[in-house]
Simulated assay, not measured.
Amino acid sequence: MRVAEIARLTGTTVRTVRYYHHLGLLPVPEERGGWRDYDLSHVARLSRIRWLVQAGVPLKSIGGILDSPAVAAAPAGAAVIEDLSEALTAVVEHLAETTRQRDMLASLLARARDGLTVSPMPPRMVAFFDRLEAASPDERTRAAVRRERDLVDVACYGGRMPPEAEYLFPGPDDGEDDGALAAYGQDTENLTDTQVEERAAQNIARFERVLGPQRCRELATQVDMSAIRSLFQLIAAAEPAYARVAEAMEPLLAKTIARWSTTP
């Protein structure tokens, strides 16, 4: 048979058949009347190649697997087992990555259907920034909301936002939006040292109000202080305007968490 026929029989393409010839996986048949004449042995060999490819075995390993006299015999059998083990590991890793992508896409689709901005942030954070940006009374406040949103986005994308931080962002019924907007409207860069300390204390107090006593105690036993330090370092490096407030907040938050953890 001709190359087009063997390609059709095995569900592949003429180009792929010729590529396997180039790699040495499939023997090149003799020519008859100016055409390469394939027989059943070529069909069987190509079918086995396609079967292994569909199983996820790399092309570089297929020749050794097909030409091995017996899987159980050493040393050829050991090489086949190693190749198949590596192929299986690669497929499992790919499956895990595909599953992660599926879950992310499902989450993003759900947010889009709910009218939320698509973002790596948890939905509660996204809803908070969407709400405050829409309610900002002026461009200065709106710009400050967007800056902090970008900062949180970067932290979430880079895995530097502790999972517990989602609960620190007020919901629409917590009564914190007006105070948060007023804080965003301040000129952060020109705050006095006293105002910086006040701003840090206000933020911590808002966290406690939003969380409530029970959740404060629960989170205090779960939070990773190294993750919090990493987050504050990111804030200081990425947004100098917040650096002073972040510097004041970090030790204050650490003391508050320590207090939560010992409160009955």
Rank of each mutant, 00 (worst) to 15 (best):
I257F: 14
G64C: 11
A144Y: 03
A238L: 14
Q233V: 12
A79I: 12
S230C: 11
A238S: 13
G212V: 14
A70V: 01
L88F: 12
E5F: 01
D153N: 06
A90N: 14
R32F: 02
A96R: 11
P162S: 09
D103E: 07
L95G: 15
I6E: 03
A205R: 09
R209V: 12
A87S: 14
I65E: 13
G11W: 03
M161D: 00
V152W: 12
S136R: 07
H22G: 12
A79Q: 14
E82M: 12
W260D: 11
A110G: 10
A78P: 01
E148D: 14
T98V: 15
A183D: 13
P163F: 10
A201F: 02
T221E: 05
I235F: 01
G77L: 01
G158H: 10
D177Q: 01
P240R: 08
R18C: 00
F129N: 02
T13S: 09
G56P: 09
F129K: 03
P170S: 05
A236H: 04
D193V: 02
I49R: 06
D67T: 10
R50G: 09
I204W: 02
L84P: 09
L181I: 01
F169P: 04
V3K: 00
M104A: 09
S136A: 15
G158C: 07
R259S: 06
G77P: 00
G159F: 08
R206S: 07
L26K: 05
Q222I: 07
L46W: 04
P122K: 02
E218P: 08
V57L: 13
Q54M: 14
A258R: 07
R18D: 00
D174H: 11
E176T: 05
M161S: 04
P75C: 07
